[in-house]
Amino acid sequence: MENMVNYNPSFAEEVFRDVDSGDEIKMCMNCGVCAGSCPLREHMDYPPRQIFGLIRAGKREAVLSSKAIMLCTSCYTCVVKCPRDIPVMDVMHGLAHYALKQGYVPRKDTANFGKEFWNQVYKLGRIDEKDLPRRVFFAGGFVEGIKAMLNFMDIGLKLMLHRRMKLLPERKIKGVKLLQKMLDKAEGLGKGGIAA
């Protein structure tokens, strides 16, 4: 049978030990509700249940380089429906962080966006609605950046109209130092830590 694999617990043990929420997958009973309810199912190479199956089968490479672990949009549908109370979403995020830490970049754009988003939150305590897209759009080069900017012009104008985006740079929130202290502490609590 094509699907037959030899049981190799070493990667599963690594996930249980080192990935945030990684030990939660021990509860999985293979019902497939996460995959059946995921709105991004069609874009995933492996839906969550199969990711868990691959972990149990010891397929380290396939899991850490899979697109699926970076596609989760935190919609919570799988978390709400999981009959085994697994925070599927947290496991997927945990795996994404871990993959990046291990030098895998399954989706470059997603990783880049996450990094820029995080840096801004850390620095300002908020998101600058024009600076973040600028950084993300121009990561691929000048021409790509201009193209992306033009694509999003409508949204940009609306954001300005509703004063969600200001012309001047955003200022830091009050007590950003305290926020940073909190974030640092949270980072220390995680198993995988924050991706560089």
């Binding site: 019902c31 509700v33 059946g36 199912r41």
Partner: peptide, 22 residues
């Protein structure tokens, strides 16, 4: 498979089942 969602076709009363064949 554990069915993850059912939607109804209001006209026919038919039911669409979604899930993953595990």
């Amino acid at each position: 498979s554990k069915i993850a969602n059912i939607t109804e076709d209001e006209e026919t009363g038919g039911l669409l089942l979604e899930g993953e064949n595990t």
